[in-house]
Amino acid sequence: DGVKWDPDKLVQCPYDKNHQIRACRFPYHLLKCRKNHPKLAKELKTCPYNARHLVHKHELAHHTETCENRVCVYTEEAGSTNGNWHVPVSTWVNPIATEDWDKEADEFAAPFVWGVNTLLDRIQETRPTNNLGPSFRAPNTLPWPN
């Protein structure tokens, strides 16, 4: 497919035939126009090969057979295997066989406690300050039981 995609090409909206949208804005327009036409949105289905193609339910089967973006999965090599699919097996081997994530875990790290920042408590200068006015007071306890 040697044709270059033109972002300024006008595309007709499937929801409103009066809407001519630039191709680069088309996906955004589809989302917006779909909300404005909920009844028609239920009738239209998205092409599995190109999400910009919206067709009526009863036309989807024909469209998927003739869609310009359809990719053929049958090659000469696949055809000679009588339709059997062969999944390639990975031959990758981890070059660092001694790696052990459990052993590398930091067993001496402080446990996480919601609402408590142990790092900030250690550094006095960065401790959060109470900027509430005199008529407000900060809570002394957390809103849930320990």
Rank of each mutant, 00 (worst) to 15 (best):
V89E: 11
E43M: 08
L10P: 02
N131G: 07
H62T: 13
L31R: 12
W85T: 08
D102S: 12
P139F: 09
A105N: 07
S90C: 14
E76N: 13
H58Y: 05
K42H: 05
N84E: 15
P134R: 11
K57N: 13
R22S: 03
N117W: 00
T126K: 12
D100V: 02
S80I: 12
H58D: 15
T126S: 04
E59V: 04
G2Y: 08
E65Y: 04
D16A: 09
P38G: 07
R25E: 13
G133K: 10
R52Q: 09
T91Y: 03
L40K: 15
A41C: 04
L132P: 01
S90W: 03
N130P: 00
V3W: 04
S135A: 11
W114K: 13
A51H: 11
P14S: 03
N94T: 01
I96T: 07
P14K: 10
Q124T: 09
V89P: 00
P143Y: 07
H86M: 09
T81A: 12
F112S: 10
R70Q: 07
D16K: 13
P139D: 12
V11N: 00
N50L: 06
A105E: 12
N82L: 15
P143R: 07
K39S: 12
T91D: 09
H53C: 14
E76G: 14
T91Q: 10
